[in-house]
Amino acid sequence: MAKITFITKDQETIVAEADSGSVMELAVAHNVKGIDADCGGVCSCATCHVHVAADYMDKLEAAGEIEKDMLEFADNASDFSRLSCQMKITEAMDGMVLNVAN
């Protein structure tokens, strides 16, 4: 089980738990604002963009080529950017804090 905290642009904090699926699916299930996931999770829209707390960056599986390219030119991109639809929930994410990028 991984407990993940989402902080939205208007500073709403939502804590949610899951042991499978993607981080985007978890966010959508909990109505996290700013995770629109317009493409439904296929790495085509960048509307599921989050900033990962620094201490969790190396606990995540590296981003694939398409995700990296989508992020390079996305709005509000930083070194801590990820597309949450490409983040498969693992135990290692327990306690992770994510700031919604848009």
Binding site: V28, A29, G40
Partner: peptide
């Protein structure tokens, strides 16, 4: 979009492809 792609080939439940969760409608 998944209807002709992952939903058709993957045999997932439609719950995996909801635009919003049921509780999101209630909340808003």
């Amino acid at each position: 979009p998944p209807l002709s792609k992952a939903y058709l080939s993957g045999g997932d439940e439609i719950e995996k492809h909801l635009l919003k969760s049921a509780q999101s409608y209630e909340k808003e």
